[in-house]
Amino acid sequence: MIRRVSVSRSLFDICNYICLIALSLLCILPVIQVIAVSFSSSSAAASGLVKLWPVDFSLKSYEFILKKQDFLGSFLISVMRVILGTSISMFLTVTLGYALSKEVKDFRMRTVYAWYFVFTILFSGGLIPWYLTIKYTHLLDTIWALVIPGAVTVFNVILLLNFFRGLPKELEESSFIDGASHWTTLWKISLPLSMPSIATVTLFTVVGHWNSWFDGLMLMNSPSHYPLATYLQTAVIQQDFANMRAEDVKTLSQISDRTTRAAQIFIGALPIIAAYPFLQKYFMTGLVMGSVKE
């Protein structure tokens, strides 16, 4: 059978393609433009010649920021918080998700616990009490302030919980009959079977830690303890020169402010861009997973 394509249909198809391709370009071109600016010479950037490709290729701004102590320092702090924060967070999410995935007949307190955690989605303590609590528990100005208070993400727990529930019950039962404890069952049976969902939640946690900036701004007293996102917030967005050293301000006046800012933004986004292939692969899985319930 020959499929007849009407004129209006092919016209629609063409428009549809054009619109969608334009739209997807709209989503990535701003990033490309900033990358182009960061690799351009300062005079080209300052006079607005740079479009989507570097004009007068130059690495000056990268040389400048990679020599900057506070930039490198905050980069390392970010890396540290990602590693620490993700391991703590994942440990708590997995253990809590496993326990709450049990049925009420096996774990009578389950519903009480579940509501205890879900209530924190519904109501929160507000900015000042949150800050004061962290202050009174002596976490202020330490890396633990960025890692401990937000370690239990209830949404991720729910995601994992629903996945654990979808696993065949017979597997767990057989492991209990063989004399395994909950602990062994969790690590030897449930966890290996849930690797796709664990990967999704881990990636979300990593991205969350890398991106979060407000806690650093609130909880770190000295700028030398800022994670990269907070550093960028103060240096690029607020353009706070107060935290800068005198010689940095001098160098900055020689090379363009615009290219430096662009370079810092690009380095800040680089880990996300590098992880993006994995992110988008697990993104779909995560979404589908979260919506499948029994």
Binding site: T95, L100, S124, G125, I128, P129, L132, I148, V152
Partner: peptide, 29 residues
């Protein structure tokens, strides 16, 4: 038999109590 499950919940319970529930009471400010 349920005790291990309580132990698995416990660390998260403490952290959420400290950093979510205490700030809620802190709202008396």
């Amino acid at each position: 038999r349920e005790l291990p499950l309580h132990i698995l919940v416990f660390p998260s319970l403490i952290i959420v109590f400290l950093y979510c529930y205490i700030p809620m009471f802190g709202n008396i400010i």
